[in-house]
Nucleic acid binder design. Structure first.
Lengths: 223, 223
DNA sequence: GCATAATGTGACTACTTGGTCACAAAGATA
DNA sequence: TATCTTTGTGACCAAGTAGTCACATTATGC
């Protein structure tokens, strides 16, 4: 948790500092992100950072909290109950994710890089913890669909949940690997991750959904 | 490429050095792996390493080359033509992979960690290069199956290839995330990654195949 | 046995980092 | 104006790294 010193800061200065660190952590891993570098850019003393935060991890957790809080504001409106079909729900999450990205480029870049970021040995514990949460969340979704009789029940929910999780992350990874998006470049130009790429994003999502339907849905497998 | 000094070394000494570095790179990323640490363990001078290799990257590439060469010896015997079904081929690759792991634990651990390893910023170029190769290889497999009329043709081969690649890596990742395997611990005890875990490995592979069949095969989608 | 070539060595360089702390500056209170 | 509290500062510390190089040791060839 940031110290009160940080919270009492003028909004503009707090934002300036937050953004600078978001930018740094959006392109480097936790261990490679350099506080020394950022304070140089900001033109403030390194000691100030330690008036605001306990340590590097405290700062990092603050950034995670801020960004996820904003993203949740975009996705919390989307409820499974509003859709008869899991995949329509899945698709809508990407639609709202796109809006989050367009309106909060820096935070979106930060979250995009979070997985890479967490690979640093110093934050292995945090990584494992978050990974467990995500995996569990996806398994819960699968369990619900199985109970609704919409997903097949001849495969362990753990395995289905994990694949579903991988499908979710694969969209972004594929677009990055094929060069359709270029986070490195777009963050440099202060652009959202998916700037002008909505069509290809949703098209890819649809292709993944098209394949996943067959893999997960019940009717395809036990009609 | 290692210098001749290294190749002229006595077999036993060369193996000792290679193994020590494999062990280090099997549990750390490229940037975190410490030559200083390894030479301490080996009881040799740091200068010696630089008599053997140009630099850290040269050493790393040598390790990659050695391990993949050994693994290829296990998998090259498995040919697509020997199977009427892609998934039987896919399954057999895992069977042979298991044998490679059982008989070459250290090399297997190194390759298991390679993806993490390559995430280091210093080797980003190498990572991108290898990723492109792997993705292309998977897409080629998909193209072949489409041509054979076995895989569906209503999804871009790039996307199918990427998902197939992700399915391949997910097996290991899931087993690790769920604690079924524990590379960290098994390398410490000089055990293979999948020691005594063949049943759960192949069971998981079968589950993934079961789901993937539906997602990729033509008959399920355009009969 | 001697000279030459090939190996082995470890103190050293140049560099980077997160984090500290004695002090300076600025704000607030009275 | 004088005092007290909050905020800002940057030289400094301890720890770590890859890579170098002048020198010591060992092997080889004659």
């Amino acid at each position: 948790m940031p110290k009160s010193t940080f919270l009492n800061l003028e909004d503009s200065k707090r934002k300036l500092i937050t953004d600078a660190f978001l930018r740094e952590f959006a392109i480097k891993s936790f261990d490679d992100a350099s506080i020394t570098e950022v304070v140089k850019q900001l033109g403030i003393a390194k000691g100030s950072v330690y008036q605001y935060f306990d340590d590097k991890l405290d700062l990092f957790m603050y950034l995670i909290g801020e960004c996820t809080a904003i993203k949740i504001r975009y996705t919390e409106a989307v409820k499974r109950e509003q859709f008869s079909d899991y995949w329509a729900y899945f698709r809508e999450l990407f639609e709202h994710g796109y809006r989050f990205d367009a309106e909060n480029p820096l935070q979106s870049h930060f979250l995009h890089n979070l997985t890479q970021n967490l690979k640093s040995p110093s934050v292995k514990q945090l990584y494992d913890q978050l990974l467990q949460q995500v995996i569990t969340a996806f398994e819960q979704m699968v369990i619900r669909e199985v109970e609704l009789g919409l997903f097949r029940n001849d495969i362990p929910t753990k395995t289905m949940g994990f694949l579903l999780y991988k499908v979710g992350t694969s969209v972004q990874e594929q677009l990055e690997a094929t060069g359709a998006i270029n986070p490195r470049e777009s963050i440099h130009n202060n652009l959202p991750v998916y700037e002008g790429k909505k069509a290809i994003l949703m098209e890819t999502v649809d292709h993944y959904i098209n394949m996943s339907r067959k893999a997960f849905d019940k009717e395809s497998n036990q009609s």
